[in-house]
Design a protein around this nucleic acid. Structure first.
Length: 742
DNA sequence: GACGGTATTGTTTTT
DNA sequence: CAATACCGTC
């Protein structure tokens, strides 16, 4: 045990040993907070605390799994009894045991993802005859979601509605909630809201869990919302041994209801709280940290904090200005190839980060062309694929036949001749008699107006579901999936199709079987209930295999908590990052800046920043200015890089050289862009400033004509090094120096 | 009731 | 430029 603690610095050690009473750990990026948390758990166990009395909440399943693995290495098998999961997974586990204490819900509830929930919202809007211009499904859905995150139930919401629109949304909320209850389904937000409501209302249950959890730890505390905050507060009320870890500068989920005040106010919430700052960074070079610190300092109202490191200064940051997104992607692909071939850096050490998922498209194209192996995290999610959703819908209906969204999804998949008319009649019958849709499906004789063929089909569908349902209790999940695919005729229909697309769908279904198999080995009981919860709550980032030798592409949000030796931060344009929607609002802009801070601090050794002059945005070409964040980075930390070499040939591999060498940068005098288009020797910024490139001739009133030999920074913050034949090399700031291009 | 065509619509980030 | 929604035809 003690040798584990030996490797901690004094602050880390203090955080590990302060086990009694509230503790706030302000942990800067890369300051070893995961190590602190895992050591803290091991320390508690070593002190004789029972594992099941420890509750640790992380932000992603991946982080939970990683932490469990590390604790496991330290303390062995007892690690498995620690309550270690995400908020949502914790609530799901809790509600599986306790939900029947709430009226209306049953323990075999299903969890609806945002797609499912949106389809319920749509049907509510239709039923209430609301104009979908004024009540966009998306906006309505997020209004309801926000309400739930603030723990406003249907009643509270109606009470605080002070205008027509809000009142109507309140009606949608009410109907939506009624439907979910009728379907015995919970959406993501319900998991949290109902957990808190149950704990608040039911003293017996509350005390049971308050007593149980003697030590509570919450990671990424800056990203907790109101519901999560209250959940933790209630659970910690008895023992007060609450340790929260976070970094206000990395709060990036405000749009999802996260309230940064939860961490800022921790000391006033818990006056006896001890607080510890972890400011030594073990991850990044000094250059990278200086850049990150400089950017985040532009945020107002922030508790001063400054990361430092013993690491080397490291390489300067390279900044590439691209013509368009294809050019940007090619620069990245070529640079990666060079890093891999010349400097022997594995692709697995590189990550490309972007603000929006849509930006991955151009990158993917370039990577496929260049042959760089990559994994995309997020985007088109595995579980969002049609065939996966279809089979999952079957499983859900088997688990809970009242799941009407699932039932509607599969009622005519594969095609069995049950069309809109029949469905309409079934729905009408169900509504009139106030029974689940499944009752109508399984008793078609009672439903008026059905044709004989429809009745037959419905009966055989019901029989299929009953058969599978009967076996669900005993069969391993993978066998159940197999049976479902066969007996439903789903697989047969795909096989009959005999197209490449159908082929790849079959492949995906096989992948689902693999998931169901691997899931068993994870030591959780192999039943449908666990599998459904697992699938509903697992994000792509959790399953992505980042260890392989593949470059990783993902959004900045997904990158949180990860680190890579080499990071490309792309699309640094005003309107992309920061995103247009945030430009008008100071608080949202500050969140974008924190996101930038998160992105910069992912890099361990080398950082590349890229931006483009123009970009195709749904159909048309848009011009952007460079991101303001770029000018917030001190120019002496950053070099402008260019791509040089021959024009790409139309056939075979493009013959190009990258001059963005990791150390010491040399620029060609004939800059040619990788798109093969000759770049004009100077480009004018939208802001009006002259953009300098290495090799440009510059005239200065005092020193005469010289040659630009180095460029650092971007925009008006540029610094240029110019060699004047009679006066030597001068470093000049573009903003102030009276320079003209010649 | 199925299918294929055209119109329309919309893009931030995710448990 | 998608992806989806809706509509008209078979």
């Amino acid at each position: 045990m003690h040798h584990l603690l030996d490797r901690l610095n004094p602050e880390q050690l203090a955080a590990v040993k302060h086990t009694e009473g509230p503790l706030l750990i302000m942990a800067g990026a890369g300051s070893g907070k995961t190590r602190v948390l895992t050591c803290r758990i091991a320390y508690l166990l070593d002190q004789g605390v029972a594992p099941y009395r420890i509750l640790a909440i992380t932000f992603t399943n991946k982080a939970a799994a990683e932490m469990r693995e590390r604790v496991n290495q330290m303390v062995g098998a007892q690690a498995k009894d620690i309550w270690l999961s995400t908020f949502h997974a914790f609530c799901a586990k809790f509600l599986r045991m306790e939900i029947e204490n709430l009226p209306g819900y049953k323990r075999n509830f299903v969890i609806y993802d945002s797609g499912d929930s949106q389809s319920v919202i749509k049907s509510c809007l239709k039923e209430l005859n609301l104009d979908d211009k004024m009540f966009a499904p998306n906006a309505t859905q997020s209004a309801i979601s926000n309400a739930k995150n603030l723990l406003l139930d249907v009643r509270d919401f109606a009470r605080q509605a002070d205008n027509f629109h809000a009142e109507k949304v309140g009606e949608v909320y009410k109907l939506y909630q009624q439907k979910l209850e009728a379907y015995n389904a919970l959406d993501f937000d319900d998991l949290l809201m109902l957990t808190v409501q149950l704990l608040q209302q039911n003293q017996t249950v509350r005390e049971k869990y308050q007593n149980k959890f003697q030590y509570i730890m919450v990671d990424e505390y800056q990203d907790t919302n109101r519901a999560q905050y209250l959940l933790i507060r209630i659970l910690a009320e008895k023992h007060h041994n609450l340790c929260v870890v976070g970094d206000a500068d990395q709060s990036i989920y405000g749009w999802r209801g996260a309230d940064i005040r939860n961490i800022l106010d921790f000391e006033s919430d818990y006056p006896q709280a001890k607080s510890i700052k972890l400011e030594q960074n073990y991850r990044s070079t000094q250059v990278i940290l200086d850049a990150a610190n400089a950017v985040i300092e532009h945020n107002a109202d922030r508790k001063p904090k400054s990361l430092w490191t013993d690491n080397q200064a490291g390489e300067t940051i390279s900044c590439y200005k691209a013509q368009n997104e294809q050019d940007e992607a090619h620069f990245i692909a070529d640079t990666m190839t060079k890093l891999n071939m010349v400097y022997r850096r594995p692709f697995g050490s590189m990550a490309v980060l972007y603000r929006t998922n849509a930006q991955s498209r151009a990158l993917e194209t370039a990577f496929n062309y260049t042959g760089i192996p990559y994994t995309i995290v997020g985007g088109v999610k595995f579980y969002d694929r049609k065939e996966i959703r279809d089979i999952m819908a079957y499983l859900r209906v088997i688990f809970n036949p009242e799941d009407t969204v699932g039932l509607l999804r599969i009622i005519n998949v594969p095609r069995r001749g049950i069309g809109d008319t029949t469905i309409g009649r079934l729905m009408a019958y169900a509504a009139e008699n106030n029974v689940p849709l499944f009752d109508a499906v399984s008793n078609p004789d009672l439903v008026p107006g059905l044709k004989t063929k429809a009745k037959q089909e419905l009966e055989s569908l019901a029989a299929l579901i009953f058969t599978l349902l009967g076996k669900a209790g005993t069969l391993p999940v993978k066998d159940l999936i197999n049976l479902t695919m066969k007996e439903s005729g789903y697989l047969a229909e795909l096989e009959k199709e005999d197209t490449p697309q159908a082929e790849s769908r079959i492949e995906n279904l096989k992948e689902l079987l693999t998931v169901a198999k691997q899931y068993v080995t994870e030591g959780i009981e192999d039943n449908l209930e666990n599998f459904l919860s697992h699938v509903a709550l697992v994000a792509d980032i959790d399953t992505a295999e980042l260890a392989e030798d593949r470059a990783t592409l993902m959004t900045l949000h997904s990158a949180k908590g990860l680190e890579f030796p080499i990071v490309f931060l792309t699309g640094l344009e005003e309107g992309i990052f920061p995103h247009t929607r945030t430009l008008m609002n100071e608080e949202e802009l500050a969140e974008e800046r924190r996101l930038c801070y998160v992105g910069l601090t992912r890099a361990q050794q080398k950082l590349y920043l890229t931006y483009t002059e123009e970009r195709t945005l749904y159909g048309n070409t848009v011009r952007f200015r460079p991101s303001p964040f770029l000018t917030e980075i001190p120019p002496n930390l950053m070099d402008a890089v260019t791509v040089t070499g021959q024009k790409a040939s139309s056939f075979g591999q493009p013959a190009r050289k990258i001059m963005a060498a990791p150390t010491g940068t040399v620029h060609s005098f004939n800059a040619i862009h990788s798109s093969g288009i000759v770049n004009s020797s100077s480009a004018v910024h939208s802001s009006g400033a002259v953009e300098w490139r290495t090799g440009d001739k510059a005239q200065h009133p005092k020193w005469g004509i010289g040659t630009v030999i180095q460029v650092r920074g971007i925009g008006e913050n540029q610094e240029v090094h110019i060699a004047f034949p009679n006066n030597g090399v001068k470093t000049l700031s573009v903003k102030f120096a009276p320079l003209t291009k010649v």
